[in-house]
Simulated assay, not measured.
Amino acid sequence: MPPTDASTDTGAGPTPQLGSGAEDTLELRLPEELLALFRENEPSADSGEAGATATGDLLGTPADWGPAVTSAGSLQLVPVRIERDVVLISRWMNDPAVAAFWELAGPHSVTAAHLRTQLDGDGRSVPCLGVLDGSPMSYFEIYRADLDPLARHYPARPHDTGIHILIGGVADRGRGVGSTLLRAVADLVLDHRPRCARVIAEPDLRNTPSVSAFLSAGFRFSAEVDLPDKRAALMVRDRALRNLL
C-alpha cells in the first residue's frame, strides 16, 4: 500500500498508509455530529482563515493560497481534476522511483481511484498539482493530520496539517527543488490556516533523501513512529520556529 512519507528529491511521495489499503487513511469517516461541530468551529472568512467558510471545508481552499514566490519560480497549488490530470499523475506514479513508495503503479484507473477517494471524501485531504512557472511538475496532498489515522500514532494537536509530495520530473530531483517547494507549501499552510500550529510529515526512515529534504525545508525531526507498514520519521514544521529554521 502507499506509504505515508513524502519523498521529494527522489520523486517518491506518500499517500496515507496506515492500514491494509490506500483507502484506510482517506476513508476514515467521522460521525455527522462531530463533522457538524468542526464546521461550527471553523473560523469564518472575516476571522482570517481563507476558504474555511460556511461550506464546512476542513482545509479551506488551497487553490486560493498562492502563488508562492520561491527561488525555483512561482508555485501555484491547483486542485486536481481527474479527467484533466490523471494521465500525467499516473505517468509519475509509474516511475519506478515513485512506485517504490506510493505503490500506485498500473493503469490510469489505479491513480484515478486513489484521487477519487479524496475528491469524493469529506474534504480532509485535498490533492493538488504543483504548478511551477506555469508547468505542472509535482503532486501534493494537503491533509488534516489530526483527523487521519496517523493521529493514533503520535500526540496530535487540533488542526495539525500534513503534506505529501511527489516530484514528477526527473530533472527536478536531486537539486533542492523538493526542499524549496516543501518550505513554500508549509508556509502557505501556516499563512492561510491560522489555527494550524504545526505542519506534519511522515517520511519512511529508509528514505534518507526525503528526510533530508524536509530538514532543509525547515522541518525538525520529532520522533520515530511505528506505523502498520513502516517505521517513519515524524517531521514537524512549527509555526513558532518558522523564522528560525
Rank of each mutant, 00 (worst) to 15 (best):
S179I: 08
T111G: 15
A184I: 02
P127K: 05
L129D: 01
P228N: 08
S109P: 00
D229Q: 14
D238A: 15
P43C: 09
A6V: 04
P149R: 05
H108M: 10
P2H: 11
D46H: 11
R242V: 06
S44L: 09
V199F: 07
C196H: 09
H192Q: 14
L241E: 15
S125D: 03
D133Q: 06
F214H: 15
D148R: 01
R84P: 03
D172L: 13
E141F: 01
R206L: 13
R152C: 09
E32V: 01
L181M: 03
A186L: 01
L245Q: 14
L59G: 05
T117L: 15
V98L: 07
H159D: 10
L59E: 04
A217D: 02
G106A: 03
D64G: 09
R183W: 14
N207I: 06
V78N: 01
S138Q: 01
L205D: 12
L88T: 10
M1V: 13
T25F: 12
R231W: 06
E27N: 11
A145S: 07
W65V: 05
P14E: 09
G178I: 03
T8G: 14
M137R: 13
Y154R: 05
A63K: 00
R91D: 14
A213D: 12
G56T: 00
G19P: 05
E32I: 03
E49G: 09
G48T: 07
P16E: 12
P31A: 11
V69R: 12
L129Y: 02
S44Y: 10
S216Y: 04
T180H: 03
F214C: 07
H114K: 11
T53M: 05
M93L: 14
A6K: 00
F214N: 03
S216L: 08
G218W: 10
T70Y: 00
V211A: 04
E141Q: 12
T208C: 09
S90W: 04
K230P: 02
L132T: 03
G168C: 07
V177F: 10
G169Y: 09
S44D: 15
P14W: 11
I89H: 06
P67I: 05
G176L: 13
R242Y: 13
D9K: 05
N243V: 09
V170A: 13
G56W: 00
V170H: 08
A54P: 02
D229V: 14
L244H: 13
R39A: 08
L205H: 04
L77I: 02
L28K: 11
D122H: 09
D57V: 04
S135T: 10
R29L: 07
V98H: 08
S135A: 10
G174R: 10
T180Y: 01
L245K: 13
I165Q: 08
G169W: 02
E40V: 00
F140W: 14
L181T: 03
E141V: 08
L147Y: 00
T111D: 12
P16R: 09
P96V: 12
V177T: 14
N207V: 06
A22K: 10
R124A: 10
